[in-house]
Deep mutational scan, measured.
Amino acid sequence: TGIVNVSSSLNVRSSASTSSKVIGSLSGNTKVTIVGEEGAFYKIEYKGSHGYVAAEYI
């Protein structure tokens, strides 16, 4: 489990890349469940599926 540490919002992406499609966003202080790690990204549970967020902001 981690907490989103941004002042505005954090993009949730379809894969572990900044060039991948943005599938949603999370606001600051949102609690997320981390299920894996790929490079600089965490794989998280997101809306019944999975998404990827930049690990530096969690």
Rank of each mutant, 00 (worst) to 15 (best):
A54H: 09
V6Q: 07
L10N: 02
K47P: 02
V4Q: 04
Y42C: 05
N29A: 09
K31V: 14
G2N: 05
G28M: 12
G51F: 04
S20W: 05
V6G: 10
K47D: 10
G2S: 05
S9G: 14
S27E: 13
V12A: 01
T1Y: 15
Y46P: 00
I58W: 04
F41E: 01
E37V: 15
G39M: 04
I23V: 07
T30L: 06
N11M: 14
I58Y: 03
I3V: 12
I58L: 06
G51C: 03
V35E: 04
A40Y: 08
L26H: 02
I3T: 09
K43F: 05
N11H: 13
Y42H: 02
V32P: 01
V32K: 00
E56M: 13
H50K: 05
E37L: 15
V32C: 04
I44V: 05
I23R: 02
S20D: 03
E37W: 14
V12F: 02
V53G: 02
V4F: 05
G48M: 06
T1E: 11
N29S: 09
G24Q: 03
V53C: 03
A54I: 14
I34D: 00
I3Q: 07
E56F: 09
K43P: 01
K47N: 13
K21V: 10
L10Q: 04
G24R: 02
E38W: 08
S17A: 08
S49G: 15
S17M: 07
G36W: 06
S49H: 09
S9A: 11
I23M: 07
T33N: 10
S20A: 13
Y42N: 01
Y46A: 00
N29D: 08
Y57D: 07
R13A: 04
F41Y: 09
T30F: 07
Y46E: 01
N11E: 15
G51H: 02
Y52K: 00
S9H: 12
S27A: 14
G39R: 05
H50T: 10
G2P: 04
K31W: 14
N5R: 12
G24M: 05
Y57A: 08
E37N: 09
A40N: 11
S20G: 13
I3N: 06
G48W: 06
S14G: 08
S15W: 08
G39H: 05
G24E: 01
E56N: 08
I34P: 01
T30K: 05
G2T: 06
V6D: 05
T33A: 07
R13M: 15
T30S: 12
K43S: 03
G39D: 06
A16H: 04
T18P: 14
I58P: 02
R13G: 04
A16S: 07
N5K: 12
V32T: 02
Y46R: 00
G36C: 08
A16W: 04
E38P: 02
E37C: 15
I44E: 00
A54C: 15
V4N: 03
S20Y: 07
I23N: 00
K31N: 07
Y52A: 00
S15R: 11
S20L: 03
G48K: 06
I44F: 01
S17C: 10
S25D: 06
S14D: 11
Y57W: 09
S25E: 10
L26K: 00
E37R: 15
A40I: 10
Y46N: 01
Y52T: 00
R13W: 15
E38C: 14
A40Q: 11
G2W: 10
T30N: 05
I3P: 03
Y46L: 03
A55M: 15
V22H: 04
S20I: 02
F41D: 02
Y52E: 00
Y52N: 00
K31I: 14
L10P: 07
Y42I: 07
G36N: 06
S49V: 10
S19A: 11
R13E: 01
T1S: 10
S8L: 10
L26A: 02
S20K: 02
S15C: 12
V6A: 10
Y42Q: 01
T1M: 12
S25R: 14
Y46S: 00
G2Y: 09
G48R: 05
L26G: 00
S27W: 11
H50Y: 15
T18R: 12
V35H: 04
T1R: 09
E45S: 07
G39I: 03
S27Y: 10
S7P: 10
I34C: 04
S49N: 08
A54D: 09
K31L: 13
G24D: 02
A54Y: 13
S14L: 13
K43V: 10
I58E: 01
T33H: 09
Y46D: 00
N11F: 13
G28S: 12
V22M: 06
V12W: 02
A54W: 15
S20M: 03
E56R: 14
N11S: 13
V32A: 02
K21W: 08
Y46F: 13
V12G: 01
K31Q: 12
K21Y: 08
K21F: 09
G39L: 05
T18W: 15
V53W: 01
S49P: 01
V6W: 07
V12Y: 02
S9C: 15
Y57K: 07
I58G: 01
I44W: 01
Y42K: 04
S19H: 12
S25A: 11
T33G: 03
G28N: 14
G24S: 02
S14M: 13
S17F: 06
V6M: 08
S15D: 09
N29H: 12
S14A: 15
Y46H: 04
S14F: 12
H50L: 09
A55H: 07
V35L: 14
S8V: 12
S14W: 08
G51V: 03
S27F: 11
T18A: 13
N29V: 06
T18D: 12
L10I: 15
V4A: 05
I34E: 00
I34N: 01
E45K: 11
F41Q: 02
S9K: 12
V22G: 03
K21L: 11
E45R: 09
T18E: 13
G28T: 12
V35P: 01
Y52D: 00
G24A: 04
S27V: 12
V22Q: 04
E38N: 06
R13K: 06
V35A: 05
L26Y: 02
S15Q: 12
K21D: 11
S49D: 08
S8N: 10
S7M: 12
